[in-house]
Design a protein around this nucleic acid. Sequence first.
DNA 1: ATGTGACTGAGAGTCCGTA
DNA 2: TTACGGACTCTCAGTCACA
Lengths: 69, 69
Amino acid sequence: MPSIRILFGIRVRKLRQALGISQEELAFSSNLHRTYISDIERGMRNVSLDNIYKIAVALDISPKDLFDF
Amino acid sequence: MPSIRILFGIRVRKLRQALGISQEELAFSSNLHRTYISDIERGMRNVSLDNIYKIAVALDISPKDLFDF
DNA sequence: ATGTGACTGAGAGTCCGTA
DNA sequence: TTACGGACTCTCAGTCACA
C-alpha cells in the first residue's frame, strides 16, 4: 500500500492530464509554485488543507474528489 | 463559505462524536496530541496529508470521507 | 473533557537554476 | 515540458501549562 502522499500525487497528475494542462498551468491557476506541483505529483510533499483546496479549485473539482483512490 | 480548515474540523468532530469517543481517545488512537486534535476541530490547524491519513484510520473511514462536506 | 497561548524543531512552500 | 538540486523563509507539527 503506497503512502497517501503517493496516491494523492498520482490522483493530481491524472486529473491534471485529463484537463490537458501542464504543471506550469496548474501552478498558475492554483497560485502555487511550478516545482511544488512537480513534487506533489511525485509524492514528495505533505500537502496541507489550504493547498489541497487550491488544487481542487484549480482542477475544477471538490477536495473530496482528490481522495478518490 | 467557511474555509476548508473549518469544514474539515467540523467533519472530524462530527465523526468523532458519532463514535462516542473523546478528543483524548482519538488523540491516542491516531497517535497525535490531544490539544492538536482540539485545534483541528476548531479549524485552527492547516492539517497535512500524513495527519489526515492518521485521523481517517483512527476514525475507521477513508480519507475521502473526511471531505464529505 | 476541552480550549487556548506560547514555544521549538522540522518541514512546507518559494525561487533560482540545469538537464 | 518535466525532474531535480540548492538555498531560502515561514508555517506546521508536536508539546506544555493553565484555564
